[in-house]
Amino acid sequence: MGDSMGTDTGRKIRVLVAKPGLDGHDRGAKVVARALRDAGMEVIYTGLRQTPEQIVAAAIQEDVDVIAMSILSGAHNVLFPKVMDLLREKGVDDILVVGGGIIPDEDIPALKECGIADIFTPGTSTSETVKFIEENVKRRS
């Protein structure tokens, strides 16, 4: 019974993978979710059409270390900052937030300004994303 007695305890990085907005292109989100899983993380996938409010509520209930969002429709300049505002409103400051999707370079500085830790654009390898998360999670206990 030994092996079933919780030898596999201790912190695991928990990541909420979310698709804010209405676009249904979740190929990237799902590939990233699997890659994070294969890197030993616990990945909670929220599915499509999530409002910023739903994403933040889920992140809190799931007590995640990371929120990873993907948008391909061009709504990032509205929805990413909204998520950051809501997190601040709730006093959450220990969640690393990253974004991905079709996001023009010129939009990135403003997104980082509002608190998104990094933006992964098309062509980014999943291992880069994994590494970034591992190196930048805020909570370690």
Partner: peptide, 25 residues
């Protein structure tokens, strides 16, 4: 890998904003 894909929440997300429902994966 020790990792997990937790997908059950997907079908319950409409309750996310209701304080009377707490969902944990």
């Amino acid at each position: 890998t020790g990792g997990a894909l937790l997908g059950d929440r997907l079908r319950m997300q409409r309750h996310a904003l209701d304080d009377g429902v707490f969902i944990r994966s």
